[in-house]
């Protein structure tokens, strides 16, 4: 099951963060958890993650800001952003996609949905890698 993809989880609720982490680890992802937006930004600047799971309402820097920064960062051009938020208005979803989010899940989300988003991202990353190495 090990796929080795690196996931950063930015979520201020420790339990939700733990929930996502537990399930993604079970899927073979390597996870790191951050409750503070600012600290997460620093970490993102240091290293490149394949998947970023982002909450919107965060202490410090909010999820939209982080999403925008990732979108502007060329090193992150192949990474996937999964936004997880209690904000369920259509305009928030649209705004997230405009800022470059690939998935937008509203809380309370279905666990299956989160896992499939992560798997899909992983598969797309693998395919891209294959094309690159074979070509």
């Amino acid at each position: 099951m090990f796929n080795g993809k690196r996931v950063i989880i930015v979520e201020d609720d420790r339990d939700i963060s733990g929930l996502i982490s537990y399930n993604l680890r079970k899927e073979g992802f390597l996870t790191e958890e951050f409750a503070d937006g600012g600290k997460a930004m620093n970490r993102i600047g240091e290293e490149i993650f394949d998947i970023v799971v982002l909450d919107i309402m965060l202490p410090g820097v909010d999820g939209f800001e982080i999403c925008r920064a990732i979108n502007d960062d060329p090193r992150y051009s192949r990474s996937f952003v999964i936004m997880v938020s209690a904000k369920c208005r259509e305009q928030d979803r649209l705004y997230a996609h405009l800022l470059g989010a690939d998935y937008y899940l509203t809380k309370p989300f279905d666990l299956a949905e989160l896992i499939s988003a992560a798997r899909e991202s992983s598969a797309l990353l693998d395919r891209e890698h294959l094309i690159k190495t074979s070509g």
């Binding site: 339990d15 929930l19 537990y22 209690a86 809380k107 309370p108 989300f109 279905d110 666990l111």
Partner: peptide, 14 residues
């Protein structure tokens, strides 16, 4: 309301 609900639903599903 949604934050605790997310945990409850998530862990039940887990």
């Amino acid at each position: 309301l949604k934050t605790p609900l997310t945990s409850i639903k998530g862990f039940v599903e887990t």
